[in-house]
């Protein structure tokens, strides 16, 4: 479904992604971990072309993402994205946040979009906040709205870029619960996170990155029990033993 083939990416002289080969299949939950600056977020952002790749090829359902002829807006409809800092629209209510893209991109009617938005709000457990503004919500609630906003487009793929890193510890659970439920429903998910519990429990595959390379790909059971790479072992010992 998502295929990276020898992808390189440079920011000026600095190479952020080095020879990335990675295939993510339909219905798979892939968790990308690694130290900061390892290129995890950049990798994720290439998938919906928030970042462009410099070399190699990247395709989604057979469509070349980098190709100028690919209608990127059409591609993006099928890829929901959740950001570390939520990026809800502060001038719109929760409901309006969720309805905007279905109305303007998919051309849904007001009532249809509203029904769908309400459905996903219930799904993420905050149906009663429909008419609040984002600033009136807690971080965890805001992030759940952001997930509902992504889901309302009916995407095939959901991308999560450190979705719990900006949250108070108490709020992390509620967001992870929503993500777990989504994973169990068979959504294709690519998740950049430091939540090892989530990775262990939900991921079909762990991708470990360091300095722009994918160093290791393994199932959570393999990876946590016996990481092959020395760098991965060091990383795990640092974040698990504290």
């Amino acid at each position: 479904m998502i295929v990276f083939d020898r992808v390189n990416k440079y920011f000026g002289d600095f190479q952020v992604l080095k020879e990335i080969n990675l295939t993510i299949n339909k219905g798979e939950v892939v968790v990308v971990i690694g130290p900061s600056g390892s290129g995890k977020s950049t990798l994720l952002r290439c998938i919906n072309r928030l970042e462009t790749i410099s070399e190699g090829s990247l395709s989604i359902n057979g469509l070349n993402v980098a190709d100028k002829k690919t209608d990127i807006n059409k591609l993006r409809r099928n890829i929901g994205m959740v950001f570390q800092h939520f990026h809800l629209y502060p001038h719109k209510t929760v409901l309006e946040n969720i309805m905007l893209a279905p109305r303007k991109v998919l051309g849904q009617s007001e009532s249809e979009a509203k029904k769908i938005a309400q459905k996903y709000l219930e799904k993420v457990g905050i149906g009663d906040k429909a008419n609040s503004f984002p600033s009136q919500l807690s971080g965890g609630q805001q992030q759940r709205v952001a997930i509902a906003r992504g889901l309302a487009m009916g995407p095939d793929i959901m991308l999560f870029d450190e979705p719990t890193s900006a949250l108070d510890p108490e709020m992390i659970g509620e967001v992870l619960d929503v993500m777990k439920a989504l994973a169990h429903e068979g959504m294709t998910m690519v998740v950049v996170t430091h939540e090892m519990g989530f990775a262990r429990e939900v991921a079909d595959r762990i991708v470990f990155m360091d300095e722009g390379r994918v160093l290791e790909e393994a199932t959570p059971a393999e990876f946590y029990a016996n990481p092959r790479e020395e760098r991965a072992r060091l990383f795990l010992s640092r974040i698990l033993n504290h």
């Binding site: 807006n73 993006r76 800092h85 629209y89 001038h91 905007l100 893209a101 991109v105």
Partner: peptide, 26 residues
């Protein structure tokens, strides 16, 4: 904030729509 444009674009809005519906009102 830059994230506003990214959120809007990643949901499939065109640059013009994102500008008009998300950025300019703010």
């Amino acid at each position: 904030p830059k994230g506003q444009m990214e959120a809007a674009r990643s949901s499939g809005l065109t640059y013009g729509q994102a500008m008009r519906l998300v950025i300019l009102p703010q």
